[in-house]
Design a protein around this nucleic acid. Structure first.
Length: 753
DNA sequence: AGCACGCCGACT
DNA sequence: GTCGGCGTGCTC
């Protein structure tokens, strides 16, 4: 009987059907090499094996089976891929692109090109004590012998012997890279036959049976028990809401340890690399080498090793990773923890699949019959409402760790300060006074400005000309380092003109302000202070990031100026003052989530002030001191914010009461684009009525020489979202089939941030 | 995604 | 007269 396999290729295309040659057996979830097109060879994932002959003229055969026929994807992972493809309206191939590490999906024009790229595991040196030294008496004897003459070697022996269960893998070996002893010392020990070195494929085994669990406070204990109870009673998803410093992490740790002890797998999702590194370290202190990190800063090889190792694992795995870790091939997933679940970086906005890892976590856990814990100090309104309505379980941690008091929030009126002549540069007198006092006391301050660069743009003082990108409809951002103007959309860079190119009269000057400008000003006003900056421009690498953070933690800097980056989970003991330079640009974002975001951001920044020992101070500079969100931040009243915002969302029919799908149409000819969007809007209105909004011009309506226009679909949360997507897919298909609009690109973003 | 096919501008 | 630009459509 002829057999066929539907193969998913890493393309924005549906699966293709290939024949299975005589004697070749494959099953769903395995990887194969196939020839696609004239000569290109791709890695594909077998989705389904069947014997229905497709009605194409030529049916090509699968070239060979990869990874020795190992099943790369569990049935649950395949179900997740399918859910994502259907929910986010993309192809399985697009899911494949993010789900598999790059090295695992080689492609090439020739067989050599293809297989040369194929992953080969790297080896690593493992060290263990010689058999002789396993005997305690003999060990001490030798230690005594070398202690004086070779202190380094003695140290190394002790280190090796003392390496806890968490670094030692099952065979009693320790990876050399985990030892402090250097090459020469280990070599000497090896020559003396005190230690044995073996080279093997790295990180195949994971050790670590002993976890050092933190003690819980009474509040934490109550919350933990409550969550356990709710999970046991059948709630699949729960929210753990706890203010900054209340110790959510300790609760995660206890739940994680319980699952690992049962042999189940755990996935801990964290927003992004900045936070990832810190949390991974923290988890390694507890769980040792049980922790498997997975984030964008890993090398392609590491990612592949991790993927394959997990695929072969029998359970008891603990992965800490960023959003794409949701795709790792865990087989006994029992718990997914999503830390800072409200964080926007869980949603991938470009390219497809435009998935939200937090929502995928909930789906995945359900597929495995596992549980999801969503943690946040300031939950997204979607999650909060789900918890409130009883759809999700819920536990609240009200108190800061060790009874520390919340920071005192001072609201400083920018307009009033300006009227009184109490505004210098971008600082009100109040903030400057507090910074001065803080420095005098030897304390540290953090200043938050939600904007990168020296200042956003340059302007001619005479005629108002501003530098704009020739390819995108945006002003160019001014970066002082190098006197450059940069487009944040396409990367176009040019120099700052000496004279205004328009009126040729005067110089152009920087307008507005970003972190770089603030850094400069604060350094000028407080010449004695050591100032550093943390934003995407100053952080060129993980190393640079760590250096800036380490300097601040060690109090080698006094003031840290930064963007969002400084809001994320740092525990700096010395920070007693936090300044928010401009709350207005947070509040006035033209986005239905602006108020929620502003609250989350300001609350998070404020949480950086004053840990443990003394309460901190927060100064918020704003021209709207009476704004409800400012008041809610000042009083730390999340619920007031949530209730007020939910009322607005309900009134204006926004999430969580409606589901949004954003459509963006793109074309280089603006007239054709205009006709196209009107046509599509009309078609959609015929099906969805007033649920269709637009056409609307997006904030940036031209990128890389292409024009953009948006449509927004709002469907009641109570309605069937599957049906809505079905109708939308139908209409998009028939729209794109029209000859005139074939060249118009339509991007679908389900649940846009 | 890659690649071939096909129709309009600057070169030997 | 051709070489080559990239716009369009197809790949099991």
């Amino acid at each position: 009987m002829p057999r066929y396999a539907d193969i998913v290729l890493p393309l924005a295309q549906p699966a293709y059907t290939f024949a299975l040659p005589e004697g070749v057996t494959v099953a769903g979830g395995e990887a194969v090499a196939v020839q696609f097109g004239r000569r290109r060879i791709y890695t594909g994932i077998v989705w389904r094996v069947h014997d229905r002959r497709p009605d194409f003229r030529t049916v090509k055969s699968v070239s060979r089976v990869l990874y020795g026929g190992m099943r790369l994807l569990s049935p649950e992972q395949m179900a997740l891929w399918e859910w994502i493809a259907s929910y986010y309206m993309c192809s399985l191939g697009e899911v494949m692109r993010v789900a598999l590490p790059a090295l695992m999906k080689p492609s090439g024009d020739t067989e050599e090109e293809f297989s040369d790229d194929e992953f080969r595991p790297r080896t690593e040196c493992y060290v263990s004590l010689a058999a002789e030294l396993r005997d305690e008496g003999r060990f001490h004897e030798i230690c005594e012998k070398i202690e004086r003459r070779a202190p380094k070697q003695y140290e190394a022996l002790l280190e090796l012997a003392a390496a806890g269960d968490e670094t030692r893998i099952a065979t009693g070996e320790v990876a050399r890279r985990l030892l402090r002893a250097d090459h020469a010392v280990l070599d000497a020990l090896r020559r003396k036959k005190y230690v044995v070195c073996t080279r093997r494929e790295r990180s195949v085994e994971r050790g670590g049976a002993v976890f050092r669990l933190p003690e819980l406070t009474a509040h934490q204990q109550t919350a933990l028990e409550s969550l356990r109870g709710q999970f046991a009673a059948g709630k699949t998803t729960a929210l753990l809401q706890g203010v900054t410093g209340s110790g959510k992490t300790e609760i995660y740790i206890h739940l994680i340890a319980e699952v690992l002890a049962r042999g189940g797998d755990v996935l801990l999702l964290v927003p992004e690399i900045a936070l990832t590194a810190q949390l991974i370290e923290r988890m390694e202190r507890i769980f040792g080498s049980r922790v498997t990190p997975y984030h964008s800063k890993l090398t392609p090889r590491r990612r592949t090793e991790t993927f394959l190792r997990l695929g072969r694992s029998e359970g008891g795995e603990f992965v800490v990773g960023a959003r794409s870790a949701i795709f790792l091939p865990l087989k006994r997933l029992q718990l997914v923890v999503v830390d800072e679940e409200h964080d926007a970086s869980y949603k991938q906005s470009d390219p497809a699949p435009r998935y939200n890892a937090r929502d995928c976590a909930v789906v995945t856990a359900r597929l495995f019959g596992g549980r999801t814990l969503l943690g946040s100090a300031t939950p997204s309104l979607e999650t909060w409402l789900n918890a409130r309505s009883g759809k999700y379980g819920r536990a609240v941690l009200g108190e800061r760790y060790g009874g520390a008091r919340p920071p005192e929030v001072l609201i400083s009126d920018t307009l009033r300060a300006a009227r009184r002549g109490e505004r210098h540069a971008h600082f009100n007198k109040l903030l400057l006074d507090r910074i001065g006092e803080t420095l005098a006391r030897g304390g540290q301050a953090m200043l938050f400005q939600n904007r990168r660069g020296f200042s956003p743009y340059v302007e001619c003082t005479e005629c108002g000309w501003t530098a704009r990108c020739p390819h995108c409809n945006v002003t160019l951002t001014y970066h002082k380092g190098g006197e450059k103007l940069v487009c944040h959309y396409c990367g176009h860079t040019e120099g700052v003109p000496a004279k205004c190119p328009s009126c040729r009269v005067t110089d152009v000057v920087p307008v507005g302000f970003g972190t770089e400008k603030i850094e400069e000003e604060v350094a000028r006003i407080f010449p004695g202070a050591r100032v550093a900056r943390l934003d995407r421009d100053s952080v060129t690498s993980e190393r640079a990031f760590n250096a800036i953070v380490a300097d601040f933690a060690a109090r080698r800097t006094d003031i840290l100026v930064g963007t969002q980056m400084i809001t994320k989970g740092f525990d700096f003991e010395g920070v007693s003052l936090v300044g928010i330079l401009n709350a207005d640009n947070l509040l006035n974002n033209p986005d239905f989530r602006a108020a929620e975001r502003a609250f989350q951001l300001m609350t998070q920044v404020a949480g950086r002030a004053g840990r443990r020992s003394e309460p901190g101070e927060v100064v918020i500079q704003t021209s709207e001191p009476g704004h409800p969100v400012i008041r809610q931040v000042a009083s730390g009243d999340y619920e007031a914010m949530a209730l007020a915002q939910l009322a607005e969302r309900e009134a204006f029919f926004y999430p969580p009461y409606a589901r949004l799908t954003a459509l963006t149409l793109r074309h280089r000819d603006p007239m054709l684009l205009r006709r196209g969007v009107l046509e599509l809007a009309a078609r959609l209105r015929a099906r969805f009525g007033r649920r269709v909004l637009g056409p609307m011009a997006p904030p940036v309506d031209r990128i890389r020489g292409e024009y953009l226009v948006g449509l927004l679909l709002k469907v009641e949360s109570s309605a069937s979202s599957a049906r809505a997507r079905e109708i939308l897919a139908e209409e998009l298909k028939s729209f794109s089939r029209q000859a005139e609009y074939k060249s118009v690109t339509v991007v679908v973003n389900v649940d846009p941030q």
